[in-house]
Design a protein around this nucleic acid. Structure first.
Length: 701
DNA sequence: GTGCCTCGAGTTCC
DNA sequence: CTCGAGGCAC
């Protein structure tokens, strides 16, 4: 750090900027904490805070007692250490209709290879609407507590969790290492009493118990948390050093014996009928429980079966949440706004008269596409019913026809020119629904065809380019990109990297712009420079080629290894066929990639970009598990697991499962009754193992 | 041809 | 988080 005194002028400027940002942040804090009605996105808010802290880092004299950085509750996200979960905290699949309970049971039976009438015990328990936490005990003592976070990484809230009476600081009789998982929540009565007291004291109040719980746990001062009457129910576990139960129900009972509270309405059910009966019993009791629940969770009782069932992407196959019908609210549809996405997709957005649904103020909801609007016959001025799908995303359920204004407004039509042709509202290019060549059906999305001229697509493309999983340019968010684009500073990705060199040419330098200063301008340029080298997969993703998301970008990168090899393939005359040979890439994706590289303007933009950045080859196929990348064939019957399970297991390890043996096969797992495939495997000299050996190898032994 | 599963794209609010 | 559709196995 430099000890050179800062010129007085610069310091004065920084001080003014610091004060301005501070006032702005304080106002947003007030809106967020007291009114529960923030007016900026989290990203924008974080951006303000980052700029504020960057100033203090450069000018320590600004970080006085008045600094927001020193105030409790001011910078929640920054102050808690991130902790990686030993075992991920995943989410649950949802079901909504009664009939799906039976389907869920059937799915489980099918995967396990059980008969339709085979006994299958499940637990059913209320799904508490609170905050999931992982509480780690070692040698019986509480050592660490973390929030769920994104499921893989949470925040360390140990000091706050310790103040909760319902959570014991010591367990009796638990394994040496025991991570209890459950929900921290607040009772209605406590919430109301406390909220009233908060209001009387002129302190922030909260919209609902869940928000209050979240706010309490994220207090920097544990004494505040201690004054909040939080409760806890344990329902799951993370890392444990020794088995402590063989069934889900037994595990709940064991946790009770350890001293942890568990929900009394947890019940062991023997059939779908019993599960459904318990669901309705809980639903009937909902209003009398004294705390918020949003459904019932079903779990396969036998832990050995849970293990066999495993996970699909991010949720367990052995559990699901049966949600109560979402709260529905009426409001007025004030307008329908057409947004243009990165790929040119025109998506209608309902602008609603703000209304509270499920404890949150909603003013926007997507209408998806034209067909959706037509199906629901939604018209501007209509009173509509709104709910939050999965209690998160606002959704227009339907129209209240009785309340439609007289005379009826016209049905909504997408933007057209004077001759009645559909056009993009931003650039005026034709906006078409592609026709599927095979079925002759029109695509549900209408797309702007001005891919290379449409400003909306260009801006969205730039946002995508700089976004977290692409170039990840810190501090270069949506708002800034829009501003720079509007100012004509950036048109293509390459322009981002020449910003510093062009700064001040023909216009004031960035540091003199409103809202900027010496430091923030420098930080931005530095952030851009740190991204001048990039891995091939990220680079391909950043280009924003249609159908090429993170996964397909990685597939292509893995296959070709480096940029030059890939580019040669993508520009070849038969590029589409060549690309379709890549694992997981089909004709549609291949065609989209080939088209992209056949367009001269894309090529020009790429050449310009490659003058500024270096693309690193993708590291060789991840070493990881010894079976990763191998092609495996299962034949004969398996006794310890079904075919599906074995396949899922192999794929988790990065292996590919094929049905027939060929020269490409690396390994054959043969069970009793294996016939011709086994013979063929021997002929080809492919390694053959039995189920026992397979289990060992897949476990990594 | 059918039926999964996975992927991409677009959206909302904290 | 959800919808639609691409990829692939059956």
């Amino acid at each position: 750090m430099s000890k050179t005194p800062h010129p007085a002028e610069t310091l004065a400027k920084a001080r003014a900027e610091h004060a301005r940002l501070g006032a702005e942040i304080a106002e947003h804090d007030r809106r967020y904490f007291q009114e529960d009605a923030p007016t900026v996105s989290d990203a924008e808010y974080d951006d303000l805070r980052r700029r504020y802290q960057a100033l203090e880092a450069t000018f320590p004299e600004l970080a006085d007692a008045e600094s927001l950085s020193r105030k409790v509750g001011a910078a929640p996200a920054e102050k808690f250490a991130k902790v990686r979960h030993a075992v991920p905290m995943l989410s649950l699949g949802n079901i909504f209709a009664d009939a799906e309970v039976e389907e869920f049971c059937a799915r489980v039976r099918r995967f396990l290879g059980l008969a339709n009438d085979a006994p299958l015990a499940m637990t059913a328990e209320p799904k508490i609407d609170g905050l999931s936490c992982n509480i780690r005990y070692e040698d019986g003592g509480l050592v660490q507590a973390t929030t769920r976070g994104d499921g893989y990484e949470g925040e360390d809230v140990t000091a706050n969790i310790r103040t909760i009476d319902a959570i014991p600081n010591r367990l009796s009789g638990a394994p040496k290492i025991f991570e209890a998982r459950g929900e921290v929540y607040m009772r209605h009565a406590d919430f109301q009493a406390l909220n009233t007291r908060q209001a009387e004291a002129g302190k922030p109040t909260f919209a609902n118990p869940r928000n209050f719980t979240a706010g309490s746990l994220r207090q920097l001062d544990p004494r505040i948390t201690a004054s909040r009457p939080l409760k806890f129910f344990a329902y799951a576990w993370g890392e444990v050093s020794a088995p402590f139960a063989t069934t889900q129900f037994g595990a709940i009972e064991a946790m009770r014996r350890f001293g942890l509270p568990a929900n009394p309405l947890t019940k062991l059910c023997r059939s779908a009928e019993e599960m459904l009966a318990h669901y309705h019993a809980i639903e009937a009791e909902r209003a009398n429980l004294g705390y918020d629940i949003d459904g019932v969770v079903y779990k396969v009782d036998d832990l050995a079966l849970q293990q066999r069932l495993g996970f699909i992407s991010r949720s367990p196959r052995w559990a699901t949440a049966h949600k109560f019908p979402a709260e529905r609210v009426m409001t007025v549809l004030e307008a329908i706004q057409i947004n243009v996405g990165r790929t040119g997709a025109l998506t209608p957005l309902a602008k609603l008269k703000p209304v509270t649904v499920g404890g949150v103020v909603v003013s926007n909801a997507t209408l998806h596409n034209e067909d959706e609007i037509a199906r629901k016959d939604v018209r501007v001025g209509d009173t509509v019913v709104v709910q939050r799908a999965g209690d998160v995303i606002p959704q227009v359920v339907g129209v209240v026809l009785d309340k439609r204004p007289q005379p009826w407004p016209d049905p909504f039509v997408f933007p057209q020119d004077e001759r009645g042709n559909f056009i993009c509202p931003v650039c005026g290019s034709a906006a078409l629904r592609e026709i599927d060549e095979k079925t002759g059906e029109a695509d549900v999305v209408r797309r702007c065809t001005g891919h290379l001229v449409c400003p909306a697509q260009a801006v969205e493309g730039l946002k995508h380019f700089a976004s977290r999983n692409a170039f990840d340019i810190e501090g270069f968010g949506d708002k800034l990109i829009e501003l720079f684009f509007k100012e004509g500073l950036i048109r293509t990705p390459a322009d981002i990297f020449t910003l510093r060199a062009r700064d001040g040419q023909g216009r004031p330098p960035l540091r003199d712009w409103e809202g900027f200063g010496e430091t923030s301008a420098k930080n931005l340029f530095d952030a851009i420079d740190t991204r001048r080298t990039i891995a091939l997969n990220r680079f391909l993703f950043a280009l924003g080629v249609r159908h090429v998301g993170e996964t397909n970008a990685r597939r292509l990168a893995r296959h070709y290894g480096d940029w030059e090899t890939f580019r040669v393939a993508a520009r070849a005359p038969d590029a589409a066929q060549e690309l379709a040979a890549v694992e997981g890439i089909g004709p549609v994706v291949a065609e989209a990639v080939a088209d992209f590289f056949a367009e001269p303007r894309n090529e020009d933009a790429l050449d310009a970009l490659l003058k500024e950045v270096t693309v690193e080859p993708m590291e060789a196929v991840a070493a990881g598990h010894p079976l990763a990348g191998k092609t495996i064939v299962f034949t004969g019957s398996l006794e310890r697991m079904t075919r599906d399970e074995a396949k899922a297991m192999a794929e988790r390890l990065g292996a590919k499962v094929s049905g027939s043996i060929s020269g490409k096969t690396d390994l054959v797992v043969a069970g009793p009754g294996a016939g011709s495939k086994l013979t063929k495997a021997r002929e080809l000299g492919v390694e053959t193992i039995d189920e026992e050996e397979w289990l060992k190898r897949s476990a990594g032994v």
